[in-house]
């Protein structure tokens, strides 16, 4: 993007080209119309409708029978005859805040471990050794497996009675009795985290690897000749150089983690310990016939993610200016 701004448009005879240029711009507009129309129909309009439904008491059975109720889905209060105030709405709903906590907790922990493990895998893949292609092929497998399939595969491995994971951990002496990973409230979130970290670390590793491969090799050569300790090289040279790549990967993964739905829905159905914002919003929209209420919850999740995108753009600016200074 920066190159466009600095390079003048490639035109040998500017005045003679102007009619041609206008024609090109006109054609470009026509090329863009179908794509923009498609996005308006499947993205912009539904988003606007969702936000609107959030201000109504629409039900699933009667999509057009809802009435505007202002912020009642979000927060409303009623004064009881005794003078006490009763709060209602999403913002006063403990199950909503439980879902918010689950989502944020999941996002922070999963992205943290994915970054650390992704970094380790990327460093291994960046080294030259026999069988590197094999390792890269192997780590692509978790990424290629559909989320639902991995949820069922791990559901079987984490089974309390016949699961192989309990067997391995018992044999290694890590646990003293079989654990009901997905059913017990204490371990359900851990189970979700294990599966998600297993599935998405490869993506993280590939993004970090792309960053690592842009670091010129002679930097390592120079520091090796100077006798700098490899750990120091990593923290002083490699890490600062690939920081932009890591930041982008982290933001992408965070956005993805904040909207997690399928893994939770399939691996730990109806467990309050893992219900995320997406799961609870869909539950209200479809299962509980509270279309307006669920729409309001979707809108709140959208706002949360928008805040992260804004943060991303802001961070992007910071990186960009940092690069031009150099």
């Amino acid at each position: 993007m920066t190159t466009e701004a600095t390079n003048p448009p490639h035109t040998a005879a500017r005045s003679g080209m102007s009619e041609l240029k206008r024609q090109r711009v006109r054609a470009a507009m026509w090329f863009l119309v179908p794509m923009l129309a498609a996005l308006a129909i499947v993205a912009a309009w539904p988003l606007a409708r969702t936000i609107w439904f959030g201000f109504t008491d629409t039900t699933l059975n009667n999509l057009y029978g809802g009435e505007f109720i202002g912020f009642e889905n979000y927060l409303t209060w009623r004064e009881l005859s005794s003078g006490a105030i009763r709060w209602r709405g999403i913002l006063a709903d403990p199950s909503w805040w439980n879902a918010v906590w689950n989502t944020v907790y999941f996002a922070v922990i999963s992205v943290f471990f994915e970054t650390v493990f992704g970094m380790i895998v990327a460093l291994v893949l960046n080294a030259e050794f026999k069988g590197r292609g094999l390792v890269r092929a192997a780590i692509l497998i978790p990424w290629a497996i559909p989320t639902i399939v991995s949820a069922r595969m791990w559901g079987w491995m984490l089974n309390d009675q016949f699961g192989i994971l309990n067997d391995i951990f018992l044999n290694l002496g890590l646990i003293s009795q079989k654990i009901a990973w997905t059913a017990s409230a204490d371990t359900a979130m851990t189970a979700i985290l294990i599966v998600d970290i297993w599935k998405t670390t490869p993506f993280m590793a590939l993004l970090i690897l792309a960053g690592l491969q842009m670091v010129p090799r002679d930097i390592y050569e120079a520091s090796r000749i100077d006798g700098v300790h490899p750990v120091k090289v990593f923290f002083r040279i490699t890490l600062p150089l690939i920081r932009p790549a890591i930041m982008v990967a982290v933001i992408f993964r965070t956005l993805d983690a904040l909207r997690i739905f399928d893994l939770v829905y399939v691996l730990t159905p109806n467990s309050a310990a893992t219900k995320t914002m997406s799961v609870i919003a869909r539950e209200n929209l479809i299962d509980f016939n509270k279309f307006g209420y669920g729409s309001a919850q979707s809108t709140l999740l959208f706002l949360l993610i928008t805040a992260f995108v804004a943060l991303y753009i802001w961070l992007g600016r910071v990186n960009l200016s940092g690069e031009t200074e150099r």
Partner: peptide, 17 residues
């Protein structure tokens, strides 16, 4: 921006559509 949309945010609107 659209590629970062959470799917759930458009679920209600797409359902209606």
């Amino acid at each position: 921006g659209v590629s970062m949309f959470p799917q759930i945010a458009v679920l209600a609107g797409v359902f209606e559509l």
